[in-house]
Design a protein around this nucleic acid. Structure first.
Length: 138
DNA sequence: GCCAACGTTGGC
DNA sequence: GCCAACGTTGGC
């Protein structure tokens, strides 16, 4: 069964367009225990929302986990992990943080409860609702 | 740019 | 093992 996630990045740092350009990206640099546990729980084939933090404040795309957790190549301590992701589809209409907050179905999302969590789980219902708002629902 | 929230570090 | 100081993140 597919699990759903939301992953944050500042667009200036590494944005959706960078991932599209690269075709595949290594999601490294996560240095938070809770976020790291989420990375470890990911399996190949899981789906994730790409969220632009700080200067974007919106969900912009859908990606697929293409490799489960492995040691973060940029981490010398060996404590942290990274995953690989591939872009699947851009959202037809990006879903803003404001829209998420305003939607009762999304009011319990992990990123609202803990805004600093950079890798968070998304429930199946939340996933469907966001894709519906984005116009990407099948 | 500011500041609140939160995690981490280090002195004791 | 506690907790104050500090650093980082991310919304505003």
């Amino acid at each position: 069964m597919t699990q759903y996630w939301l992953m944050k990045s500042e667009p200036e740092e590494y944005g959706w367009h960078d991932l599209v350009r690269d075709g595949e990206g290594v999601w490294d640099g996560v240095r938070n225990a809770q976020a790291s546990n989420n990375l470890k729980a990911m399996r190949e084939g899981d789906l994730a929302l790409f969220y632009h933090s700080r200067t974007g404040l919106e969900v912009v795309g859908i990606m697929r986990v293409s490799a489960a957790a492995f040691p973060d190549p940029r981490d010398e301590t060996g404590r942290w992990v990274a995953v690989k992701v591939q872009p699947v589809d851009p959202l037809k209409r990006p879903v803003s943080l404001k829209a998420i907050k305003a939607n009762p179905k999304l009011a319990d999302m992990a990123i609202l409860r803990q805004s600093r969590l950079s890798v968070a789980g998304v429930t199946c219902d939340e996933w469907k609702e966001i894709l519906r708002l984005a116009g990407n629902a099948e």
